[in-house]
Simulated scan of single mutants.
Amino acid sequence: MALGRDPLAEEAQARAQAAADAEQDVARSVTLRDVTDHYIANKKTRNGALKANTVRDINEVVDKVFAAWTDKPIAAITRSMCEARHAELVRGGLHGDRPAPTTARGAFVVLRALINWAMEKYRVNDEPLIRENPVRVLKGQMAPPKVRTTKAPMNRVGHVWEALQSVRRSPARLPATHTQADALAFMLLTGARKEEVLGLTWDRVELGEDAGAWHLPTPKNGNPVWLPLSAPARALLKARPRRKGCEWVFPSATGKKPIGTPRGPAMVAAVEAAGCHIDRHALRRTFTTLAVTVLGIELWKVRLLTNHISTGGDVTLDHYTERNDLRYLAPEAERIGAWIIEQGNIAAGRNVVKLPDRRRA
């Protein structure tokens, strides 16, 4: 042994250095897909793990928009690559056939989040694997968030309702189409999100003669809530056929899962009746608009009825107002349901106008 040398210590140091080098090599080789999988498995929001729809959307962006980058080391993604891919999407979209600035924005918002995750979770020599997020180069270049405002015109709400009831009553339509019409009508009556309605099960429904409610245990905003059911909503649910062994209120043809997103004849009928393009979420905006602007219901009550993410930053409403059992808002739900039915009767010509009494005293 040479003077001043310790072979055992040198060997231990060499092993430690080799392990550190191997760890660095692993970190440097982490791919975009690796980071995506780690993010999906470990990311927590204030409402817990990522929801299935969010996971689907993230995977779709990575697998389709950034397919060429999926198996590349995430640290190899550069500012120039981001600029070039963003420009491609803006000019021609995913398939090169039409401009898609909104798609481009959404895709790079996802990529930015994934790279931020990698910056926090992966390190080399105790330094971040990525020092600067390359998506930052797009600051000021991405299209602004698209604000969706589509809804049925207030003077066409009754026509939409009547169109859905006509589809529901038609013996020429398939049972699946009847179910889709009922689901859309329920969205209009409650202002609920598509996923909340299509995933509804019978064990979360309470139906009485004069009152009723339905429960959302894991809604988008993480606030479990009981919501009131208006008389028309109760009537709709009571009329729904029940299948033995089927838990879903709006089941698929097999009854083994919820029905898919309504896109067939029921949705077409609703769009035609509205006189403009509307989608499922537009029915939620229609509910909110008619409640506030037509019926004059206070906005905070409408936010609660739609189980909105926030009541607007009002501390009293957020922290001191009952937000889990909203059956006390049944009178407001009844007003909304009654107005929709009234408009449907008018649209169908069933309204009876009481003429003034002209008899002389």
Results as ranks from 00 to 15, higher is better:
T254Y: 08
L229M: 11
P258G: 09
W202E: 03
L227M: 14
P251L: 07
V205H: 01
L207Y: 05
G212I: 03
T261H: 14
P265C: 00
K256F: 03
T201A: 11
F250E: 03
N223A: 14
W202I: 08
P265E: 12
D210L: 03
K238I: 01
P241V: 09
A269M: 12
E206P: 00
N223R: 15
D203E: 15
V268H: 15
S230W: 06
W248L: 04
K220S: 08
T254H: 09
A270E: 13
A253E: 15
L207I: 06
E209W: 08
P241F: 04
R240H: 07
L227Q: 03
P251N: 09
W248Y: 14
N221H: 10
K220G: 08
P217I: 02
K238P: 04
R242M: 10
A211F: 05
G245D: 04
V205E: 02
G245C: 07
E206Y: 01
T254N: 12
G245H: 10
G222C: 05
T201C: 08
G212N: 10
P219Y: 14
S252M: 09
L236N: 08
W226H: 12
A231Q: 15
T254E: 12
P219F: 11
A269I: 12
W214H: 06
E247F: 00
G212P: 01
P228E: 03
P217E: 09
R204Q: 13
K244V: 08
G212D: 10
A235Q: 14
E209R: 08
